[in-house]
Structures are given as C-alpha cells and as structure tokens.
C-alpha cells in the first residue's frame, strides 16, 4: 500500500518537475506562470491589460494574414461552379433569346419600376448619425463564444458598447477595444442581452442570445400572446443603442419566441460601427 503511494508520488513529481534534454521549462513552472497571468487578467491588472492590447493587435493581424490563402479556396470553388453553370446556361439561353426579345420592352419597364421601389425601401430605414466602416478580420466560430474581430480600434474613435450594424441591421456591440482592432459580441452569443421593442403596442422585451443562430425574446409581458412574423427593433432603453435599428423577425418555436436575424452573423465581411457618445454609467 505504502509502496504504491510512493510510486504515485514519484510519477507525479517526475511529470511536474522533469525538464528533459530539450525542454527549457518544467510543467509546474509554466502552470504557475499561466495561473498568475490568468488571475492578473481576471482582476483587470493594468499592465496585463496594456500588454494584452498589444498582443491582441499583433495576433489579430497575423491571424488575418495566415488565413488569407484559405479564403481563396471558396472563391476558386465558386468560379469553377460559375463556369460550369455558365456553359450549361448558355445553351439554354440561346433557345430562350428569341422569345425574350419580344418581351424586352416589358422587362425594361418592370426593371425601372423595381429599381425605383427598391430605392424607396432602402431610404426608409437609413440609420442617421456618424458611423465608420470596418472589415471583419476574424470570425472564428467557437462552440462557446460568438464574436468577430474588426480592423478598427480606439485610433478610429471606437469605444466599448458602441452598436455594430450590417447595412441597416443590428449585428452586435463592441466588447473589447484595442488600438487597431476591436471585438464585437454578436447578438446570438450567450452573453448578449439587448432591449428591444416590437408590434403595434410597442411591446418591450430583452433579446437574449442562446449560442444558436436565433436569439430568443425574454421578459415579455405576462398577458402577451405570442405570434410570429413581427419586426423587432432596438428600443434604446439602455441608453446605449439608438432606438429603431431593425434586428429581425419573430418566429414561434414551441413556448419560446425566437428572432430570425436580418443579418446572418456567420456571413459578415464588412460592418458599420455607430460612433455614438457612450457614458460609463450606461455600460
């Protein structure tokens, strides 16, 4: 009994302390260093925060460069598919061309009408105010966290809590600001909570991320009878978000009211950050 305990102790000590010929650090030393870094970061230690910001900027750029060649693979794949599709379509179109010529004037008329209607629709929901365009550097999909990294930081006037939109639709808010980059917490992240309003009676609720593609509505009124296909907007009750930014449409899912987001969080290439004044109290 005592001998087996001794053996266990020797094996543990050896695993923790042995460095070997090519190992410069023992396991126990690195574990201590990692633990110290973790606790300094968890307690928002100033020096670690500053170092972290510098490391973040460097690694985000490196990540962007290292994955650049891989971004061409889907492009090449699309090009091959497009070419094959074009050859097939060309044959079909030649047959249809004769018929289409007869309808040319009618199509032109409908196209003009469609364009003008599109312009009216687009101008109706423009978000006013100062904003800045940013490129998505990293959108690494994690099973736990739903966030993206953009190429704008405090140098461009970005502050923590600023709303981020894709076109005219809300996608998330800034949660971490470095000098040249920032992290955006997406609406479907578990940690995301956004006050919203919807329906004819301006019902107030909280849009809560669940780590899935569709966030859910929480804190709905007691007597509210849920039904789907209603447009959800930011309410601005938290004093952070501009009221009236479109978010998505309601969908019924058994007992939950889910929201199908207008902007797919997995398909973001460029986003716009609303440069609004954010007081510390509202965060």
């Amino acid at each position: 009994m005592s001998s087996s305990r001794d053996d266990f102790g020797i094996a543990v000590r050896s695993a923790l302390l042995k460095k070997g010929a090519r190992q410069k650090f023992s396991l126990v030393f690195l574990l201590i260093v990692a633990t110290i870094i973790f606790f300094l970061d968890a307690n928002q230690f100033k020096l670690i925060n500053l170092t972290k910001k510098l490391i973040n900027d460097g690694i985000y750029r490196l990540t962007n460069i290292s994955t650049a060649p891989l971004k061409f693979l889907p492009v090449i794949n699309d090009k091959i598919k497009e070419t094959a599709f074009a050859i097939k379509e060309n044959k079909k179109l030649k047959v249809e061309l004769q018929n289409l010529k007869n309808k040319e004037f009618q199509v032109e008329f409908l196209k003009n009408q469609n364009d003008s209607l599109k312009r009216i629709l687009e101008s109706d929901v423009k978000i006013k105010g100062k904003s800045i365009l940013a490129k998505v550097l990293i959108d690494k999909d994690s099973p736990y966290l739903k966030s993206i990294v953009i190429n704008r930081g405090s140098k461009s006037g970005i502050r923590k809590g600023m709303p981020v939109v894709d076109g005219n639709y809300l996608v998330g808010k800034i949660v971490e600001v470095n000098y040249l980059s920032s992290r955006v917490l997406l609406l479907n992240d578990l940690n995301s909570r956004i006050p919203i309003t919807f329906g004819e009676n301006s019902i107030q609720a909280i849009l809560s991320g669940k780590g899935e593609s569709k966030p859910v509505l929480e804190y709905l009124p007691d007597l509210y009878e849920p039904y789907g296909n209603q447009t959800v907007f930011t309410s601005g009750k938290d004093g952070v978000f501009i009221p009236g930014i479109p978010v998505g449409k309601t969908e019924m899912d058994e007992l939950n009211v889910k929201v199908k987001l207008f902007s797919d969080p997995n398909q973001l290439s460029f986003v716009t950050i609303q440069l609004i004044n954010i007081s510390k109290g509202s965060l």
């Binding site: 574990l31 990692a34 973790f38 972290k52 985000y60 990293i138 990294v149």
Partner: peptide, 13 residues
C-alpha cells in the same frame, strides 16, 4: 485565448 477572446491564460492552463 487571444484569438478566441477568452481570459488570458485559461487555455494554457
């Protein structure tokens, strides 16, 4: 940790 936005040191541990 930096790329995933996790507290620094957690993955290392």
């Amino acid at each position: 940790d930096v790329v995933m936005g996790l507290p620094l040191g957690i993955s290392a541990i």
